[in-house]
Design a protein around this nucleic acid. Sequence first.
DNA 1: CTAATATATGAACAGTTATTCATATATTGA
DNA 2: TCAATATATGAATAACTGTTCATATATTAG
Lengths: 115, 115
Amino acid sequence: MNCDHESEHHLAAERAARNMPGDEAIGRVSAAFKAISEPSRLKILFALRHGEMCVYHIVEAVGGTQSAVSHQLRILRDNHVIKSRRDGQNIVYSLADEHVVAVLELACTHLNCKL
Amino acid sequence: MNCDHESEHHLAAERAARNMPGDEAIGRVSAAFKAISEPSRLKILFALRHGEMCVYHIVEAVGGTQSAVSHQLRILRDNHVIKSRRDGQNIVYSLADEHVVAVLELACTHLNCKL
DNA sequence: CTAATATATGAACAGTTATTCATATATTGA
DNA sequence: TCAATATATGAATAACTGTTCATATATTAG
């Protein structure tokens, strides 16, 4: 039921268990990646790479209904992937910081997707 | 029903729509992020940062049943997040490449998680 | 203040997904 | 070949999540 317990792998397993982030950290990272993993939300992020936009224009860029986009924006903002500011009647959204761009570009490089 | 159509935002929206990756690319990126977004699979990735491991030791490091871990490993491998090789009776798993480490570290930096 | 515009939100339904259980496949040693 | 070990997988259920619809809130113009 067990394989070699003196092996390199066993040592790696011990180190891994000892250094495993707590559930709180795992949960936050998980939520962030989950937020950027849905196709409709990914489209929003790819759209916002071209500059900040209000909701109406995001809808224009990615398609779908205003309600659906608004729900998705909330999830992205709650997970610190995008940020928002009010400008008169509009709420203007933009990517939270350069980390977001970097992660998207890394993923595209890794998967051979053209940006 | 429309806000300023000559604004910067409108131009950004046009550019965004024009340069939006196709559904195929969006789907691949989405699947990859979805793969690394589930807590149980994230734990596997954090574990594998300490070196390649066979299934038994991954189970040891992350907890859960052998079956559940095996299902998760399949999803990670299908999405090119991890790779595997056979070594006798064991299948040894490891992170696919440095992109994976980089993405995890970016996320942790962004979210102020200690690694 | 009122109407119009822009955005957000709660509830409900539909589709997706992680886990469990039982079982199958593959490799090794005897 | 047979038994033991290591890993994978199909089906089923339970939990989660995205979208829609209806409606609410907030800002501005008049």
